[in-house]
Design a protein around this nucleic acid. Structure first.
Lengths: 342, 342
DNA sequence: CTGAAAGCGCTTACAG
DNA sequence: CTGAAAGCGCTTACAG
């Protein structure tokens, strides 16, 4: 009939492992075992502890566990954007790979900002994560230093790492940019424009691939490049198409660094009465759902974003477990989707 | 010249508050104050502690702080989807409202599943959150019970709560569905179809509004309703449009429960040579970015999703701080965007 | 298969 | 403005 737990002091009033143990008539550590290593406890004890847990409404305290075990079961994920469907797909892949394990995801949105990345990482490191998933290969000096200092496994997503030993999952953004440009060249185009926005690492690598292909064909011309730092959007794509045509009126094809911009470019063509692809070929990058459905359907690069998240999380889990992964780098490739617009 | 910290035992080897304090020549609790309540410490001490922190690369241990203070500084957010742009906008609003406070967001994706919601909540409750943000008004009995048992403030987003005392931020999904239907009726349409997918709480309320308006006008007809549980997508919208026309060939207008379905419906009309809005009016819900740009532009309801997240987080923060909010319910309204498609 | 003791790294009253 | 002691709720070696 006596109340279990401290009468006074800082206790929360909630059931604790100790109260569960008392209720079940075992020691705290046996109660702990019954919950975390059920095989190492007798059937009777396991049942009594389970009953106590149910009757007391016991909820384990994760902070206490993390402190005592020096294992947080936390995985940090940093993505540059949440409004970009590419990264939400990556997150879904990660969530599916983490599955019903006991890991907790700490999802940070860096908004394409190095300063924000530093700030978020600083805060998340206080949770002593077991591993970290990043969306870029290069980072500020401070971030690089924090990553090294914390000493936990890191996997970079989206592109492939150049440096050996660095774990990465993705595909060559440069090769994909090259392949799309080559496709346009093979179609007979010589005046091929490149429209880039945000100018994040991935866009810059795609632009590298574009320049490489144009250079190889002797078609390079700086006036065919239109690069702005603003965030990508349909509206921006519409605006940039106008600017591209003003800047290079003889442009025959436009390679947009992502589908949002390409959609905007095509909508703009429709409004201005420019026939796609007859007067102007337009292509994008990522293959968002609308791309296959719009008229004309959009020629673009299908990217394995969901799988990138899934495989990256798998690789990280393996690294956390101390396994030596079969490879430090996983190339998931890309697919050129040739459709009506180019 | 002696090494600070324990020689042996379970210590992590990382700098602790104790080692910082020793390095600065103060007690641990003075070091703690220097970091958390800098005003209550002398300038000299503050400077010495700051120096020690820098030299040792000290990173506070959040688990220890949470355990000692019984305050996690964690806020749990549960959304039904990450691929739905509506909820990523809600998340961005929340992130902006939380800002640079010391709160940590635990973002869970329930995938429109009650079972998943239960599971996630059970795990997240182990982190002793200070508050919870939910995307629905109604939940499974088990979730309702867990919510009550944990005793922390909860704010429901998207729709407005019926029950008094329940904190909610959003707009009346039913009223919005009613307004859109009424708009179509006022345009002279009598055979107005409703296409719904996923059949989550919000869609069902919009359907309620549709039925109410149709009923008021004496136009109700079950054959005009097409409701399926599949996840919304452009492809599904295209398919459901076909089914709607097969089921109700005399249909003059179609109200899609969200823009993704509406986009798919319009693309399907284009492929089948059905003129929108002349032969068939189509409207959607949410006003996604593409809706204003596509041809024809989409008539839809603009929903304040970013602000819902922002205001909900603000309300939750106030509740956590123990303030009595000016209102338990914040109605952010909606705007009907009349465009070309209907 | 089970347990008594110590400790994880902080913060909270309580003093002075 | 500063500090010695206790405690948050769990897990880790170490025994038996």
């Amino acid at each position: 009939m006596s109340i279990t737990g401290s009468i006074k002091g800082r206790s929360s009033g909630k059931a604790t492992l100790a109260s569960v143990a008392a209720h079940a008539g075992v020691s705290a550590m046996t109660a702990s075992r019954a919950l975390n290593q059920p095989d190492r406890v007798s059937d009777a004890v396991r049942a009594r502890v389970a009953l106590a847990v149910a009757e007391l409404g016991y909820v384990p305290n994760r902070a206490a566990r993390a402190l005592a075990s020096a294992q947080s079961n936390v995985i940090v994920v940093l993505v540059p954007s949440l409004s970009n469907a590419v990264f939400t797909a990556v997150l879904e892949g990660i969530q599916d790979a983490i599955g019903s394990g006991n890991y907790q995801l700490l999802i940070g949105n860096t908004r394409y900002s190095d300063a924000e990345e530093e700030k978020l990482l600083g805060i998340y490191l206080q949770s002593n994560p077991d591993g970290i998933l990043l969306s870029s290969l290069s980072h500020s000096a401070r971030v690089t230093q924090m990553l090294a200092a914390c000493g936990v496994p890191v996997v970079s997503m989206m592109d492939l790492a150049g440096a050996p030993g660095q774990l990465s999952v993705g595909f060559s953004q440069c090769d994909a940019g090259h392949a799309m440009t080559r496709y346009l060249i093979d179609k007979g185009h010589t005046r091929i424009g490149f429209i880039g926005a945000q100018l994040d690492e991935r866009t810059l690598r795609r632009a590298d691939g574009y320049r490489k292909a144009m250079g190889e064909a002797g078609l390079l011309d700086a006036r065919l490049e239109l690069m702005v730092g603003d965030p990508s959007s349909i509206a921006l794509g519409a605006e940039l198409l106008q600017r591209m045509l003003a800047q290079a009126p003889d442009c025959e094809a436009v390679f947009c660094c992502n589908d949002d911009l390409a959609h905007g470019a095509i909508y703009q063509c429709q409004r201005r009465g420019i026939a796609v692809p007859q007067q102007l070929a337009v292509c994008g990058f990522n293959d968002l759902p609308a791309s296959a459905w719009m008229t004309p359907s959009l020629t673009t690069i299908d990217t394995p974003r969901y799988r990138i998240g899934f495989e990256a999380a798998g690789l990280l889990l393996a690294a956390i477990a101390g396994e030596t992964p079969p490879a430090t780098q996983i190339d998931l490739g890309f697919t050129l989707m040739a459709r009506e617009s180019a």
